[in-house]
Computed example of a mutant assay.
Amino acid sequence: MASTASPSPRQRRKAGAITDVAGIAVGHFTDSRRPTGCSVIIARDGAVAGVDVRGAAPGTRETDLLDPTHLVDKVHAVLLAGGSAWGLDAATGVVRWLEEQGVGFDVGVARLPLVPGAVLFDLMVGDASIRPDAAAGYAACEAAATRTPAEGNVGAGAGACVGKIFGMNRAMKAGIGTASVTVGGVTVGALIAVNALGDVVDPETAQVVAGARTRNGKALLDSRRALLRGEAPIPVLAGTNTTIGVVATDATLTKAQATRLAVMAHDGLARSINPVHTMSDGDTLFALGTGRAGQAVGMMTLGTMAAEATAMAVVRAARAATALTLGKLRLPAAADL
């Protein structure tokens, strides 16, 4: 009689990377002076773009440009950065690098690179006066490649941590992760920097991977269950967390479809982060369509792929992270517990 046992998560899927999507390159800059940095996702030939902002305290650049009713239908890069609002300055360096490469929207007298972006708050980790700037954005572009990007404590994930509901002293290190899914000759990939207030949960097992720890710091607490038991969270400032990222596909998309893809990708955050989209998070996801596959698949399938790749990338961001100690602040990683 054939076995009915389910395959293990490892047997079920391979992670892949956002750079499996034709037309996408990724570069990181990590500041060695403290854990912060930025990541850039480049589409030199332009990509149809959309965005969906779910968190209540976002820090973003040029998201209005991506409204389906607005004029421009393609962008040339997306910036993800630490440093809170200061980190948006890194986009200036991305614009400068793209202009030097002759990449941008032809406005007659010049080519104008279009670079939306989003930031996360990592100022509590290390010296808050050190944050990504234009030079950091330029350096991330210089490092961009189509190979599988590094994960964990790099780029926009360098200073990211999770599980801060019960205080930073009980949080854990997270980072940036990537994954991809291919169906019928079309690929969807995700690159996600995870700095969530909540815990990271593996959707395949429903187990917490990284997040708030017990009072003695030696085990995972499970924030969802703790909150439902009535344990009081520690008050935090709005926007001091945030998960940001990009989903990209080689499918042919309209601008409205790109926006819908970003919307559906947030389902991946909801499966892999709990709680998510809180008043203290600025969760923002961009969607890019390069059209390199030369075909389209139904939005039902494409959106399902986007949510899956996003959830996988979140879990990888937690699993790839390494522990960090800065003075009295100790942030263990998933591997340590």
Score class of each variant (00 low, 15 high):
residue 198 G to I: 10
residue 233 P to K: 00
residue 19 T to K: 07
residue 203 P to C: 07
residue 319 R to S: 08
residue 156 A to L: 05
residue 243 T to L: 08
residue 304 T to A: 15
residue 143 A to L: 07
residue 327 G to M: 08
residue 87 G to P: 11
residue 138 Y to C: 13
residue 256 A to S: 14
residue 152 G to P: 03
residue 56 A to C: 12
residue 317 A to R: 04
residue 319 R to L: 15
residue 298 G to E: 09
residue 326 L to R: 10
residue 230 G to I: 05
residue 79 L to D: 04
residue 165 I to N: 10
residue 254 T to M: 06
residue 164 K to W: 01
residue 193 A to K: 03
residue 104 G to R: 10
residue 82 G to H: 05
residue 313 A to L: 02
residue 80 L to K: 03
residue 69 T to K: 12
residue 117 G to N: 03
residue 321 A to Y: 05
residue 216 N to G: 11
residue 185 G to W: 01
residue 214 T to F: 04
residue 140 A to C: 07
residue 237 L to R: 14
residue 207 Q to L: 13
residue 185 G to Q: 02
residue 193 A to T: 02
residue 302 L to Y: 06
residue 275 P to D: 00
residue 55 G to M: 06
residue 88 L to R: 02
residue 279 M to N: 15
residue 161 C to I: 11
residue 75 V to C: 04
residue 147 R to V: 13
residue 310 T to D: 02
residue 220 L to R: 05
residue 273 I to K: 07
residue 117 G to V: 04
residue 86 W to I: 14
residue 89 D to K: 12
residue 244 I to R: 01
residue 203 P to M: 05
residue 107 V to M: 11
residue 98 L to F: 01
residue 267 D to T: 14
residue 153 N to A: 15
residue 58 P to Y: 03
residue 206 A to Y: 03
residue 212 A to Y: 00
residue 107 V to Y: 08
residue 170 R to E: 01
residue 239 G to N: 08
residue 295 Q to G: 11
residue 75 V to N: 03
residue 267 D to G: 08
residue 151 E to W: 02
residue 228 L to T: 12
residue 121 F to W: 08
residue 336 D to E: 15
residue 68 P to G: 07
residue 194 V to Y: 02
residue 143 A to Q: 12
residue 277 H to G: 12
residue 51 V to I: 03
residue 240 T to W: 14
residue 263 V to A: 09
residue 98 L to Q: 05
residue 181 V to Q: 04
residue 330 R to E: 15
residue 77 A to D: 01
residue 218 K to L: 15
residue 322 T to R: 10
residue 152 G to S: 10
residue 7 P to K: 10
residue 222 D to A: 10
residue 31 D to L: 14
residue 326 L to P: 00
residue 203 P to T: 03
residue 131 R to H: 14
residue 113 P to T: 09
residue 307 A to H: 00
residue 130 I to D: 09
residue 245 G to N: 00
residue 214 T to H: 03
residue 158 A to Y: 02
residue 202 D to W: 06
residue 306 A to C: 08
residue 166 F to D: 13
residue 39 S to G: 13
residue 61 R to L: 14
residue 8 S to W: 01
residue 223 S to D: 12
residue 177 G to V: 01
residue 135 A to M: 14
residue 336 D to W: 01
residue 8 S to L: 12
residue 269 L to G: 09
residue 59 G to K: 08
residue 64 D to M: 05
residue 208 V to R: 04
residue 48 V to W: 01
residue 113 P to D: 08
residue 270 A to E: 11
residue 249 T to R: 06
residue 6 S to Y: 09
residue 153 N to Y: 05
residue 141 C to F: 00
residue 160 A to L: 06
residue 323 A to S: 15
residue 125 V to A: 09
residue 183 V to K: 13
residue 10 R to V: 14
residue 315 V to R: 01
residue 315 V to T: 05
residue 121 F to M: 12
residue 244 I to P: 09
residue 41 I to S: 07
residue 277 H to I: 09
residue 272 S to W: 01
residue 15 A to G: 09
residue 129 S to K: 11
